[in-house]
Amino acid sequence: MSPDEEYTAYVTGRLSWLRKIAYPLCQDWHRADDLVQTAITRLYVKWRQARAADDLDAYVRVMLIRVFLAEQRGGWFSRVRLTSAISHQVPVESGDRDLAMDVNRALAAVPPRQRATLVLRFHCDLSVEQTAQALGCSTGTVKSQTSDGLATLRSMLDTPKSRLAPTEDR
């Protein structure tokens, strides 16, 4: 199997997984697609190193997070929509839609780096150490970012402290 075929097979199989990570980061499926498109482009450029990595999924996840954080650092004018055709959101049940809207609103209020920390910790189920490694920061920073992010989520969702994830890590 040639490197290109390997790349195509891997990316095709992991596309849905990547989108599911990208979506909580930006709360918009179109932007999530843009993030994924940029990440898999970078992955193609670095495919030789990536395929030799011990954990390819972790490698790609870090790439995606870095694409997201880099995009946040750039101005709005530097953001490029990589797609021409815009698909329509799939309708969801009204109860789910309300919940999703609340969660999206709350997540949008969390600063990008804290949001990335929450996504890695609770969506990707990474440990504090793994999250620190992925974000290139200390475990202490991960704990404080998690705590601050959860506090923002709590205030946005009006959830009592005891009902949102405990922050015993801190």
Binding site: P24, T83, A100
Partner: peptide, 19 residues
């Protein structure tokens, strides 16, 4: 909890991808 919250996002049906 936070895991459930993110879980609710993950179970949302994805629209067709443009990637």
């Amino acid at each position: 909890d936070a895991k459930q919250m993110f879980g609710s996002l993950a179970t949302q049906e994805q629209p067709p991808t443009t990637v």
